[in-house]
Simulated scan of single mutants.
Amino acid sequence: MDYTWQYYDLLLLGVVASMGAGAAVAALTLVAATTSVFAAGLVAVALIGHGLFVNGPVGGAEDLTDVVEALN
């Protein structure tokens, strides 16, 4: 069974990679840990925001009406 990477898999990988990069910068350079992890956190927030608001998990309003009708 082959697994294909989806958009949200790559998004989560990007969040983990950005936070790991922030920790690595803090450990390997003279940049303060608070500064590097904060900057990496901003990158992670930008990725999450893109996943939620730009390329959201629903295609449009009609996707939401199907869920609401199923609950009634």
Rank of each mutant, 00 (worst) to 15 (best):
D63N: 13
D66K: 15
L42G: 11
A33C: 10
A32D: 14
M19Y: 08
V58Q: 07
A46I: 12
A70K: 12
T35C: 01
T29V: 02
A17K: 03
L52W: 11
H50K: 11
L13C: 12
E62F: 10
A26H: 01
V37E: 02
L64F: 06
L13E: 09
A24P: 00
A46Q: 01
V58Y: 14
Q6I: 04
H50P: 00
A32F: 02
I48T: 11
Y3V: 12
L11Y: 03
G41M: 00
A61K: 03
H50I: 14
H50L: 09
V67D: 03
L47F: 11
A21S: 02
A39F: 08
S18A: 15
D63Q: 10
Y8V: 00
Y7W: 11
A24M: 08
A44H: 05
G22N: 03
L30Y: 14
M19V: 13
L10D: 07
A46D: 06
A33M: 06
A32P: 15
T65V: 14
E62P: 04
A46Y: 11
N72C: 11
V37L: 14
D9H: 10
N72T: 14
V15T: 02
G56K: 03
A23Q: 00
W5K: 15
N55S: 13
Y7I: 10
E62Q: 13
L10K: 15
F38E: 06
V25H: 04
P57H: 12
S36T: 02
A21F: 12
V16Y: 04
V31H: 00
V68H: 05
G49R: 07
E62T: 15
A27E: 13
V67Y: 09
T35H: 08
V37K: 04
Y3G: 07
V58E: 08
L47Q: 08
A21V: 12
L12I: 05
V16W: 07
T4F: 01
T65S: 02
V43R: 03
G41F: 06
T65R: 10
E62I: 13
A39M: 11
V25D: 01
M19E: 05
V45L: 10
L42C: 14
L12K: 05
A17I: 10
G60T: 07
L13H: 08
L42F: 13
T4Q: 15
G22T: 02
T4K: 15
A40T: 05
A46S: 04
S18M: 07
L30C: 09
L64E: 05
F53D: 02
A24I: 02
A39P: 06
F38Q: 12
D2Q: 11
V68S: 05
A39E: 08
L11A: 11
L71K: 09
A17T: 08
D9C: 01
W5R: 15
F38P: 07
L52Q: 10
G60I: 02
Y3D: 08
A70M: 09
D63A: 15
P57R: 13
P57A: 13
G22K: 04
M1G: 15
A21D: 00
V31F: 10
E69F: 10
V58N: 04
P57C: 05
A23C: 09
A21E: 01
T29Y: 05
F53M: 07
E69N: 13
G59K: 12
V45C: 05
V25W: 02
Y3R: 14
H50D: 09
V16G: 08
